[in-house]
Amino acid sequence: MNSTHPDMLALITTLKMAGITTVILMLIGTPLAWFLAKMKSRGKVFIEALVALPLVLPPTVLGFYLLLLFSPQYLPGQIWQETTGQQLAFSFSAIVIGSVLYSLPFVVQPLQKAFEQLGDDLLEAAAMLGASAFDRFFTIVLPITKASFITAASLGFAHTVGEFGVVLMIGGNIPGETRVLSIALFDHVEAFDYAQAHVISISLVISSLVLLSLIYLLNRPNKSRPKSSKPAISKSVISKRHN
């Protein structure tokens, strides 16, 4: 396979989409998880449910509503078109936004759990030693919950790579723009090109297996490590993958 091969192009698009999505997810998911971990009001359960919605909803439902919102007939799509000069629906940006929403729980849940486990004790101690909020985040929170950050990023990335329904609804199948591996695979199957479908499928199975094994390896309970540094990962999050 060379770089002009359509499947190679799909792989590059997939990695680009998953990479950008993961970066955005970490930037949005971290403060959101922190906010949820510290939140005490009753509104918390509603926001938690909202974040977890993509876990139970068929991806096509999310894709359908996003498709509507992204189209120039609706305000978000309209604003996008006015500011960028391009249509949002069926663009690379659209599949990144869709992926961010769709993979959000995979990033927020492990982080929220880690922050809840960490508690306030060490943060109060650090504050009493003169550490500001930012200082506390980078010198206490991040090093202690490092494994959960790696888990969150890996799950967000892997889940985005494996996405199909949302991308199909809002991205279509534009080579180099929105044609990702899962859609390329679908194309091969439709065209009865099972050989090529196997190549994509088996590579996805193996790479996903390797990535998940690494996550579980990282999360293996380690008795020599203090309790609070144990990363939080809920197995249910992983097993609930749809695609």
Partner: peptide
Amino acid sequence: AQQRNIGLVFQNSRLFPH
């Protein structure tokens, strides 16, 4: 708290495990 320049020793020592 971090600007008060007041120290606090807690009941549980709250040492940083990492």
